[in-house]
Design a protein around this nucleic acid. Structure first.
Length: 133
RNA sequence: GCUGCAAAGUGUUCUAUCGCUGCCUGGUUUCGGCCGGGCGGAGGAAAGUCCGGGCAACAAAGAGCAUCCUGCUUCUUAACGGGAAGGCGCCCUGCAGCGGGCGACAGCCAGUGCCACAGAAAAUAUACCGCCCCUCAUCGGGUAAGGGUGAAAACGUGAGGUAAGAGCUCACGGCAGGUACAGGUAACUGUAUUUGCGGUAAACCUCAGGAGUUGAAAAACCAAAUAGGUCCCAAAAUGGAAGUUGCUCGCUUCUGUGUGCUGUGCAAACAGCAACGUUGGGAUGGGUAGGUUGUUAGAGCCGGUUAGCAAUAGCCGGUCCAGAUUAAUGAUAGAAACUGCCUUUGGGCAGCACAAAACCCGGCUUAUAGUUUUGCUGCUGUA
């Protein structure tokens, strides 16, 4: 349920390249999201990657803190907001979430934004699906 | 007691819920998994990547030259540009000692160069003022005692000496080199004697010692997939159209097909040969992505003991202590320490440093809230 194992992380280099080259993207401050639907079988319904700019945050301690908060908020909400709708539509997704905020946000703020982000993603996917059909 | 400096040590803790990662392990299974349990899981600097080593691959007869690095001595070590002890110089300090701090601290008596501005002159003294001699005077000659300049002025003071002067001579003193003796493993120190007297080697250089190159994205291995390379074997045609047949295969006819060479022919063209290409099969070594090893039992850590002034080393006993790889070591809530501020002495509010392993060690450097210990400077109080 609230797990976040290796299968749910995006490690495949080819998929990553494809995501950044031809995926869709939108902004949901303080995050920037890129996503792409995948036909080939994945080990999990959604594979995700979190990123924080090294240019913006010089110290490794800060980057770690942001990534951990992002991961935690994603972990708590992904099941009901992302996995269930996708499962109904029989879709698979790769996702990247970039942190672009200028300051280190606290947990509550990130939590709120992550819920919004996930819902927005779902909307976009179903919209594109309808368009294709 | 306070303050400052230096050195050494320490670098918040606990509970609940939900997770991540490594190892061990129980049950179940349709052998894909599923449900559990236990034990570990960032640092003193993990940082900067500045030195040194292990390890790995490649290179390599030996010697010299070049280039780069190091530079008081002895010791320590796997090694070092690190460390320890000692020597010398400078500073704290007006002198000496104690104590503390700092020092690229080998050689300008091998050679070459450089020394801004000012100043007459910055090094075999081209003499500005001055002094002395000669002269009626100028010119000329001697002179580094004095003036002024400068970061630095021809070793300092006194005497002799002289026309005036000058280490020219002498006495005392300063610094440097040589020699002898004494002490010390040595750097060096002391005494005697002798020779000399600007600085600069983070100037070239000289001397002594050292350095192969590249780094875990090193390197070794694994079975598949994809595209292409090379080699071998086989097929000689192949595409299109028409006919034959109920249809397909097959067969027949017509037509098109790159390069080179040879032959026939005036030419178009035809025939033959060659490799290349085409199709199918096989082999091969490399690249990409993936996985495993390398990769955490080590110059390890803790305690004791022996040797040593110490760095350090030996011996004995105990112990196993992170291992990620788009990169784990967390999030939330509550409580307790600690530090400020407020206070109605119940408490309330705020803060809690610097900073994240990436093959592994030894150092150095830099960052660091608090707090503990030791030493020292300064101030103040008491006896």
């Amino acid at each position: 349920m609230y797990t976040f194992k290796k299968e749910e992380r995006l490690c495949n280099k080819k998929l990553l390249d494809g995501l950044f080259r031809s995926g869709f993207s939108f902004l949901c401050y303080p995050f920037r999201v890129s996503w792409m639907q995948v036909d080939a079988a994945l080990p999990a319904t959604v594979q995700v990657v979190f990123a924080v700019s090294k240019k913006r945050y010089r110290r490794a301690v800060d980057r770690n803190l942001i990534k951990r908060r992002m991961r935690e908020t994603y972990r708590l909400h992904k099941q009901e907001l992302l996995h269930l709708p996708l499962h109904e539509q029989n879709q698979q997704l790769v996702l990247s979430i970039n942190y672009i905020g200028k300051e280190i946000a606290d947990f509550k703020f990130m939590d709120k934004k992550m819920i919004k982000l996930l819902m927005q993603t779902c909307d976009q996917i179903s919209a594109s699906h309808v368009k294709l059909v």
